[in-house]
Amino acid sequence: MMIMEIQIKELRASIANKEILKGINLTIKQGEFHVIMGPNGSGKSTLAKAIMGYPKLKIDSGDILVDGKSILGLTTDKRAELGLFLQFQNPVEVEGVGFLNFLHNVKRKSEKKDVDIAQFMKEVNETASTLKMPNGIVGRSLNHGFSGGEKKKAEILQMQVLKPKIALLDEPDSGLDVDAIRVVAASINRIFEEQKLGMLVITHYNRILSYMKPDFVHVLVNGKIVAEGNSALIKEVEENGYDSFMK
């Protein structure tokens, strides 16, 4: 099996003339588990969106490569086709569009063939149940009226079904209660083990990290990666905060 690799090289990007990413270098391979931590507004979500081709973001210099080829010219849907997946920090509500039907169709599109309904629903049911999603919720409109935590779980459910090669998870833990954090972390771990995907998890909290074993930890401050290491770095952040990384 070909292992997918994303390389971010000296990436500088801005929104509305304000530079947000100030020279990012990062490589994620399928099978690797990365964590990014950083203070509010440091550019974590922007980095994830940049990988996915966020239209409002202007890439000023640098490159994003997938398997050696630049993806900067690709639209967002084409990047998804390559096997990239972004779990949104704030998933958008889509009125009138059934969650199940949406997911089924998107899945069909990504597999380029018909998807057996019974098998598809088996996977949905099992995942919804391990995620402890409330009954009836996936029968509703996509994210419409979902609580913050339900939205996060629904994103993980989509990830499970769509089977990306590299997934960017933007705060899978925010808005979750203590029990839900454990449940979601367990699901993420299981998907990571089963699907052997590459993962970049963005988070503020150590709580979810106590259930996770990332291979690499990066600290993003003010648009730059200021520290990198293994899970020991998490402890350092926990003890000293981000101040010690700022100059």
Binding site: K49, M52, T76, E81, F88, V92, V94, E95, L162
Partner: peptide
């Protein structure tokens, strides 16, 4: 049409036009 909404839908693999169509069919659906 909400650009964040389009970004979300296209990030799942739908083309921009398909995403718009989906939003309209949802809007009119009820």
């Amino acid at each position: 049409i909400d650009s964040e909404l389009l970004f979300y839908l296209t990030s799942r693999g739908l083309s921009n036009e398909d995403a718009k169509t989906l939003v309209v069919s949802g809007f009119f659906g009820s």
